[in-house]
């Protein structure tokens, strides 16, 4: 598939992380949407339907998990990737069961952003077949 058709929503309270993700996916010809918090992300979802979402867990306001639980039904074609700085983080069971949600949790700092890219593509391919 063509990257140019894909959009990604980046949700993280750290500006640098957001920026760096944004820059990378921009380079990969994604349409980039970013939100500082879960609430902002949900607002975006009212008008946008991204293909992928990169979700930070620990944020102000609602956590990333809560966001995913609220959002996944709204955007059934969207894949969710969790990227967290907390080393002890484990994917909760209910998210684990959702096939929209990737079972691979990315540990910040991500030293190879293409891994994230590849995971997104893999999941999308899987979902759409």
């Amino acid at each position: 598939m063509n990257n140019a058709d894909l959009s990604v929503l980046i949700i993280d309270d750290d500006a640098a992380i957001r920026q760096s993700f944004g820059d990378y996916f921009e380079d990969q010809d994604f349409k980039v949407l970013s939100a500082e918090s879960g609430e902002e992300a949900l607002e975006i979802l009212m008008t946008e339907s991204p293909d992928a979402a990169i979700v930070d867990v620990r944020m102000m306001g609602i956590s990333g998990v809560d966001f995913i639980q609220k959002a996944y039904l709204q955007i059934p074609d969207c894949v969710f990737l969790i990227c967290t700085g907390s080393p002890e983080y484990r994917l909760p069971a209910d998210l684990f069961q959702l096939n929209q949600v990737s079972s691979r949790v990315f540990q910040k700092p991500v030293n190879n952003l293409s891994l994230v890219h590849k995971e997104i593509l893999r999941m999308l391919t899987e979902m759409r077949t």
Binding site: A16, I17, G85, Q107
Partner: peptide, 15 residues
């Protein structure tokens, strides 16, 4: 978490 975030910022941006 606190450290990883800025590290992530540095590393990802440099990537």
């Amino acid at each position: 978490h606190e450290i990883n975030n800025p590290l992530g910022g540095i590393m990802q941006t440099s990537e």
